[in-house]
Structures are given as structure tokens and as C-alpha cells.
């Protein structure tokens, strides 16, 4: 059973498709990075998952339970932060939590629990209008966690935060994932954000990062980060004393070579290994200063996918 599963989920707007036949599959207990450039349809998808928009077609299941306009029970498993925090500025942090607690009939102790978790207990009785953006974001996260959700849906959670705020939020999310085993569905156009989260989690808990890459309303890729990396052809980065000559020699030898603009050559590895390419250059009189495999960053893979360069699933 998936944490989130959609089947042919579509949303059509008057100007055209918002999202087209999405088949999302978010494994429980995973971090799912939902990537796409601005306007790809990430927020539309999230609004569909939260029942803020009605699908034009398709179905949504959250932990096996269908989410429809008539049945919203599945949302009891979900905590969400969509874009900027929605808070009542004239109420205190504690009162903001109490409003939601009353609505979802959560236990009274949950308010103190989540305040402690997001480290806002000391500021809980201040009016929210006096909070910094980072504090507001943490309070919004506390609101999302109030009902002890099994999945957190976060839409561009670092938008508008300063570097310190981003660090704080990132640390908090890592703690949540590590300590509570919560599934996190994280949408972002900031690829480094997802990559950093993945790196830490994978290092600490041998967790696999799952990704969905969306562009113009269509899913271009869905799978693990390792699967995505496998789609990128291996490349070799070369620094040498004569770039023009090296390019000529490699071209003549049938290699695909490009200059990256910083005096470095990029060779797509195919028939020859990196050792053979090194030998070829040295034998033709080119001094090789550095030769390194290019571990494609998520950014590179993402751009390749959204430009249609990488193979589609």
C-alpha cells in the first residue's frame, strides 16, 4: 500500500491542462522529492491531493483510502503546508494551534507537544503577527503535525526564508523523518534543497530517496534517485594544456566532446574507458592535468529530463 497513489490524475484548466494523467506512487516511510520547474503543475497536484481542487479525471488514494469530494476522511492521515503559512496574526501561536486542534478534535496535549517539537514553546503566547518568517514557518509545520499525520505534504517550504531559516527548517524536517518515520512529500523547484535532504537521510538511515519529476503537467520520471542517476550517461571531465588540440584529437577518434566554457572538456563515455581516453590524449601529445568522472548532480539530471535529453521511463 502506498502512502499516496494516484491513477490517471488529471486537472484541466480553461487555458489547457494543469496536470495530465499522473500516476504518483509514494512509498510509505520515504522522502519523495516532487520536482519540476515553475509552472510544471506541482502546486496543482498538491491542491488536488488536499482536495482543494477537483480532479477532471482519475483517482487519489491516501494510505489505501479513496479521497473524493464526498469522502475526505483520507485527509486525516495528511499534514500539509502549501506555499506560505496560513496563520491568524491576531491570535497567539498557541491559539492558532488551538483553532486547528478544536477542528480536528486532537488531544489537548498535542498543542504542547508540537510547540516543543518546533521549538516555539517559549514564544507560544506571543501574537503571531510579531513572529519572524522562520517562526511562522515553524508554526505552520506545527499545525501540519498537530493531528499526528502519517504523511507530510510540503509545497516549496523554504520559499521566502533566509539562509538561517532554511537551515532551521531543514534540520527540523530531518529530525521528523529520523525520529517519527513520517513520509515526507516535498515539492520544490530548488533542486539542491531536495538533494541535500536526500544526501543527509541516505547517509544517516540508508533511506532511499524517491523522486517524481514533472514538467508541463506530465510526469517525466518516477523512481529512486539511484535509478535516475543510472539514466544519465557517464561522462568524463578533462583538464589539459591544449583544449583545441584535445578536442580535435577526440573528435577524430570518434568521441563526443564538448567544452564546458571553463577550459574543461566533457566527454560522453561510450566505447572507450577513461584510461583509454587518457592514453589516447597523451600519445597525441596533449598534457592531461586532471581527469575525473562526472557524477551528475540532481540538477544536471533534472535539466536533462525537463529538456527531453534523458530517456523517459
Amino acid at each position: 500500500m502506498h502512502a499516496i497513489e494516484t491513477h490517471s490524475l488529471s486537472k484541466r484548466f480553461p487555458g489547457g491542462f494543469g496536470v495530465h494523467e499522473l500516476d504518483l506512487a509514494v512509498p510509505p516511510g520515504s522522502i519523495y522529492g516532487f520536482l519540476g520547474p515553475n509552472g510544471a503543475g506541482k502546486t496543482t497536484t498538491i491542491r488536488l491531493l488536499l482536495s482543494l481542487l477537483k480532479p477532471s479525471g482519475g483517482a487519489i488514494r491516501i494510505f489505501g483510502e479513496a479521497l473524493t469530494a464526498r469522502s475526505r476522511r483520507a485527509l486525516a492521515n495528511v499534514g500539509a503546508l502549501v506555499e506560505s503559512p496560513s496563520l491568524y496574526g491576531h491570535l497567539t501561536g498557541r491559539e492558532n494551534l488551538e483553532v486547528t486542534r478544536r477542528l480536528i478534535a486532537a488531544a489537548h496535549r498535542r498543542v504542547a507537544d508540537v510547540l516543543q517539537l518546533v521549538e516555539l514553546a517559549g514564544d507560544a503566547d506571543r501574537l503571531v503577527r510579531t513572529y519572524s518568517l522562520g517562526m511562522r514557518q515553524r508554526l505552520a509545520l506545527a499545525l501540519a503535525l498537530l493531528g499526528e499525520p502519517r504523511i507530510l505534504i510540503l509545497d516549496e517550504p523554504t520559499n521566502g526564508l533566509d539562509p538561517a531559516g532554511i537551515q532551521e527548517l531543514r534540520a527540523l524536517l530531518r529530525q521528523l523523518i529520523a525520529e517519527r518515520g513520517i513520509t515526507v512529500f516535498l515539492s520544490s523547484h530548488l533542486l539542491t534543497e531536495i538533494e541535500q535532504m536526500a544526501t543527509h537521510q541516505m547517509a544517516m538511515h540508508q533511506m532511499e530517496m524517491h523522486l517524481g519529476v514533472l514538467d508541463r503537467g506530465r510526469m517525466l520520471f518516477q523512481g529512486t534517485l539511484a535509478e535516475l542517476r543510472r539514466r544519465a550517461p557517464p561522462r568524463l571531465l578533462i583538464e589539459c594544456d591544449d583544449v583545441a588540440r584535445a578536442t580535435r584529437e577526440l573528435d577524430a577518434a570518434g568521441e563526443t566532446v564538448t567544452a564546458d566554457g571553463s577550459g574543461q572538456l566533457v566527454v560522453a563515455l561510450a566505447e572507450r574507458t577513461s584510461a583509454q581516453i587518457n592514453r589516447l590524449l597523451v600519445e597525441r601529445g596533449v598534457g592531461v592535468a586532471r581527469l575525473a568522472p562526472d557524477d551528475a548532480s540532481l540538477e544536471t539530471l533534472f535539466l536533462a529530463l525537463t529538456r527531453g535529453e534523458a530517456a523517459r521511463p
Binding site: 488536499l50 482543494l52 502549501v82 506555499e83 496574526g89 499545525l143
Partner: peptide, 18 residues
Amino acid sequence: GIEHSDRQWKHLLALPVP
């Protein structure tokens, strides 16, 4: 306006409340 001011509808209507 209490709900419109900070777009609270998107929080309220994502709760499991009719």
C-alpha cells in the same frame, strides 16, 4: 476576512472536516 487575509482557506479546507 479572518480567513481571506492570510489565505487560511487552504489550511482549513485541507483538514478532514466537511
